[in-house]
């Protein structure tokens, strides 16, 4: 009960934040953090089943193009287009997942990597639908209950709602029996299968939900930028998501959010020195892989445990 109250308080505080601070730049950073937290959580699901997907950039792109096209071509209302795009992406994931998920380890990574590249090339080559290298311009702004959401504050609330949904659902999955099954698939698949668990179906389910979250985040991202271009959805997106997971700590959704927070804030404030982004990302990743493989969350937990034991 206490945790429910604290959660509500936290979310209310986060929601009120930009309307109190009234700094457009900080609101923008908040939107990016919420979107990346959603994406990083979606990647975390894949890391849990031990199959890193490098197709998540493409899933995000499919969501962005999908939602924009549903609104521009089919005149669907925003919410239908947004949800439709997310569902369409999970249908794609379900179709390819049928065969992709039978492949394990490095080969799965390489497979999703190639698939992602094909999707991005498709965005570039199919000019009639996706607008080629220039992409889609003038993506309409979202509207809810007849109101058009154009200001950053409104976007921030939407993005926050999405991130909250992602966080709570991923947390609920990990706390349920489903989470135990999913984790067991990475740790000892044969044992879970001997208990009558259909490993492939669980993998497919995880993959689809992960793609659903990535698609929704992509859809919102496209509406926010009002421009959808193929360059934004390549291989580097998936890499950034993996970096966020490793640095935040993959063992708990809070760690993942922490990673997304840190690695979104950092480049936004390094704007004047854009060339240093990659360097900072790369070096941080190297340091964490070598010295703190459990990420920030793991380090914080170890620190707190040591302190507790020290005082006892």
């Amino acid at each position: 009960m206490k945790s429910v109250v604290t959660h509500f308080a936290l979310i209310a505080a986060l929601a009120a934040w930009p309307f109190v601070v009234r700094q457009p730049f900080l609101t923008h950073v908040g939107i990016m953090i919420a979107l990346y937290a959603t994406l990083a959580l979606s990647m975390n699901l894949m890391l849990r089943i031990g199959q890193i997907s490098f197709a998540h950039g493409a899933f995000m792109g499919l969501g962005a193009y999908g939602s924009a096209l549903f609104m521009m071509r089919l005149d669907l209302p925003f919410f239908a287009a947004f949800l439709g795009a997310g569902l369409a992406v999970s249908v794609v994931a379900w179709l390819v997942g049928q065969i992709f998920l039978k492949i394990r380890g490095v080969y799965f990574v390489l497979l999703t990597f190639s698939f992602g590249e094909i999707i991005v090339l498709l965005f570039i080559e199919w000019v009639g639908l996706f607008g080629g290298s220039n992409g889609l311009a003038n993506v309409p702004p979202p509207g809810l209950f007849g109101h058009q959401i154009q200001g950053r504050g409104g976007f921030y609330l939407l993005a926050l709602a999405l991130a909250t949904f992602a966080y709570l659902s991923v947390r609920a999955i990990y706390r349920s029996e489903l989470g135990a099954v999913i984790t067991s698939l990475d740790e000892n698949e044969n044992l879970s299968r001997s208990l009558g668990i259909d490993a492939h179906q669980y993998r497919l389910l995880t993959f689809c939900f992960s793609a659903f979250l990535a698609g929704l985040a992509g859809a919102l991202y496209g509406h926010y930028l009002t421009l959808v271009t193929p360059d934004d959805y390549g291989f580097s997106v998936s890499v950034n998501l993996v970096v966020m997971n490793v640095i935040g700590g993959i063992s708990d959704p809070i760690g993942v959010v922490l990673g997304a927070l840190l690695l979104t804030i950092l480049p936004e404030f390094l704007r004047d020195a854009q060339q240093y982004h990659g360097l900072v990302y790369g070096l941080l990743l190297i340091v964490f892989l070598l010295f703190m493989p459990e990420g920030l969350y793991g380090a914080i937990r170890r620190f707190r445990r040591n302190k507790w034991e020290g005082s006892a």
């Binding site: 890499v239 993996v242 490793v246 240093y276 982004h277 990659g278 990302y281 790369g282 190297i286 892989l289």
Partner: peptide, 13 residues
Amino acid sequence: MIMAVAISMTLQS
């Protein structure tokens, strides 16, 4: 593989 990606990012930048 992730370490190789990290090296690649660092060298590029």
